[in-house]
């Protein structure tokens, strides 16, 4: 598990709330800082992969265990 600067718990919520929450939290980070996100929405992997592609942030990790997802995302300078 990587170190992270902030954690966002989006478990129990369907898209777009986890994405909007992540966007807001990442806005408060400085470049290079890392956010850890927990989610349970079955579409979360696709959603956060698309989110990173569109925003330019870097998806460092994506894990799934027992229906729960964990992502770590690094804020990128171009985001």
């Amino acid at each position: 598990m990587r170190n992270f600067d902030i954690e966002l718990d989006a478990r129990g919520l369907n898209c777009p709330l986890p994405i909007l929450r992540a966007k807001k939290s990442i806005n408060d980070l400085t470049d290079g800082q890392i956010i850890k996100i927990l989610a349970t929405d079955p579409a979360a992997i696709n959603d956060f992969t698309s989110f990173c592609k569109q925003t330019g942030n870097e998806l460092l990790e994506s894990q799934e265990q027992n229906g729960e997802f964990m992502f770590t995302i690094k804020k990128s300078a171009r985001a």
Partner: peptide, 19 residues
């Protein structure tokens, strides 16, 4: 076949009414 709301979330102002 759930809709993807990624575009809806990211493609404009992110206030409640717009999203």
């Amino acid at each position: 076949q759930r809709e993807s709301y990624i575009e809806a979330a990211l493609s404009g102002p992110d206030d409640f009414g717009s999203v």
